[in-house]
Design a protein around this nucleic acid. Sequence first.
DNA 1: TGGTAATCGAGACGGTACGTCCCGTCTTAAG
DNA 2: CTTAAGACGGGACGTACCGTCTCGATTACCA
Lengths: 194, 194, 194, 194
Amino acid sequence: MPESRGYPRRRSSAKHEAIIESAIELADVEGYALTTIEKVAAHAGVGKATIYRWWKSRAELYTEVYQELVPLEELGRNTGNPRKDLTDLLKAVFRHYRQTPAGKILAGLISDSQLQASARDALKNNLVAGRKPLLLDILETARRDGSLEQGADTILIADALTGLIWRYLLVEPDSLKDDMAERMVAALVFRGTP
Amino acid sequence: MPESRGYPRRRSSAKHEAIIESAIELADVEGYALTTIEKVAAHAGVGKATIYRWWKSRAELYTEVYQELVPLEELGRNTGNPRKDLTDLLKAVFRHYRQTPAGKILAGLISDSQLQASARDALKNNLVAGRKPLLLDILETARRDGSLEQGADTILIADALTGLIWRYLLVEPDSLKDDMAERMVAALVFRGTP
Amino acid sequence: MPESRGYPRRRSSAKHEAIIESAIELADVEGYALTTIEKVAAHAGVGKATIYRWWKSRAELYTEVYQELVPLEELGRNTGNPRKDLTDLLKAVFRHYRQTPAGKILAGLISDSQLQASARDALKNNLVAGRKPLLLDILETARRDGSLEQGADTILIADALTGLIWRYLLVEPDSLKDDMAERMVAALVFRGTP
Amino acid sequence: MPESRGYPRRRSSAKHEAIIESAIELADVEGYALTTIEKVAAHAGVGKATIYRWWKSRAELYTEVYQELVPLEELGRNTGNPRKDLTDLLKAVFRHYRQTPAGKILAGLISDSQLQASARDALKNNLVAGRKPLLLDILETARRDGSLEQGADTILIADALTGLIWRYLLVEPDSLKDDMAERMVAALVFRGTP
DNA sequence: TGGTAATCGAGACGGTACGTCCCGTCTTAAG
DNA sequence: CTTAAGACGGGACGTACCGTCTCGATTACCA
């Protein structure tokens, strides 16, 4: 109904983009915790109701922001070398965390997920469910080509990589650097130096 | 007895216990997110100020609660069999998460840690710093007795175990069962079925 | 209608009235001292913030209440007989003090004025500054028509009348009856029985 | 009981005096409104309970302080010239208000008197009842010697002087200077320049 | 092109909890 | 046995956002 006629196509709306950009900037400058819907609305020159019209909660808004800041397409590349692919993927993620507020935002989303059921769903169904296959694909390729043993618990390994990233993001966010990507791959997946 | 630091500052251990117990019960019944300082005070029959007198924040209070619910002493046992010790430790932790609100509380503390700097410190300096050695000790023993290769990155493996637990606690808390302990140990540490 | 100052700031006149009425009732029933903003809000079915949005303090709210309970227009009437006008004015004021909580409220405002600078200003700039001219006008008329001597210090006489009312209001509120009005006029202004 | 033996005679107690002096100093420096029992106790190096043992409330404590700062004996002097005696009395009072925190304290006591019944009693029974005779005596002398007409309402005139002082103390404390004493006497009592 | 309905910004609103302050009473340990 | 120090329950403070709502002003479509 809001899409059809009364209001222009949503994704192209200037308002919509102003909100997203304000959300990014405020998360960057003030941090996720201090970024309230109220402030985003004021910063974007938009009524609060306009935000609530499109997103049920701060978590939902920032889930979309995260997807925009760390787009799936920029992470995966299948070169046939799983170890390299995986390491590159992690490095790309960490780079986004350094260059954008995406890291803070993910940490904030994890925090929000414990405060509201809807936020937990947003995290689980979008970010987790949407990105886990990326890791699994690489790990499966590795198992198929023999660089990972047949019986490897790829799901758990994938979750462990995510868990490690979250853990560092939550308490030691500065540790997510390139060499950490190498260490993670070496310790959790392929065991040993390349 | 614990409150005799010097002369002037005393505290009623009865109140102290009433507060801790109320905190546990409310976290259990209502969940961490809905448990406000105000409710804990009311439930314990105590003024809010009495809580703020002894704990700077909800996070600090619940850090103490967590330590009480999952005491270090009940987790570690050195039997000379690192694989068994590690699996048992994880099982013991998961059991506490099933039988007490400790799991919810840890998830809540992680959430709080993103909202206030002091909460992050409480988490980092008490829970993380206090419990990591338990894992590291076992892993080092394993490396010494050869069940883990010489070059193993024990720190990262320990953090990965923690990260995995956190990840599940945060988005799939029901998955932390005994067999998950086995899978974790097999996938991240000793590689393969026992 | 009164709330259309520009476009953005509107206010619900229904709420506004509910607050004023609650304030009057509570002052009447519980007394000014026990009437907290919190109680007024609860009684009016309004959030505390709504009160603080429109009045900076309890004193400011009750200054408005006082003006409503003892409206200037009901006090002054120029009949050409200053002695009668003055006596009538005092009687009218005392009647309001008997029939409404206005007396208690003025005493409370005087009390508040010693607790907060803003309350002192509210009292001084609104009630005092707004009502003193009423007395002065009558006294000046009296001086002009000779019923008061040329050199009379009308300002001081006006302030003495106010001071006397305040003094009785503060420590012997029941003494403010009709005959007291006569006595005041006789003793402070026109000297002697009519 | 506290006088007889267990504790040394009250008026000479060092503690007692430390409390009074702290009360004076704090009223002077911070103002009456900000001077809490808590602060007086801390400043005097005394437990709060010690203060409550001797005075039921802040108002009762400060009633004693006021009596000490503006002792009756320093005000009255019967020289046989009522007009001069009265003017001198007012000047002496105003001087105390300028040189000590007595003025602030009286204003504070008036304020407190609207907050607690016991404070109203303290004000009424001690300060008002104790000092009114001073004025009345002078006014009666004046009436007897003919400088005030026979029918003068001396009670009301006395109360008007008090009321005027209170009124200025409460909203324009700086106006209480020597010439104001002259004006008051001329306007309210003896009518006309000396 | 003027009328009209949808949509918007601004922010008022009830509500909840925050963390602080001080009250007047009570408890503890030192002297 | 009295005292200081201050812990205690209680109540109100004034503030911040929440998510919903109301109001005119603005817009954009249609007749």
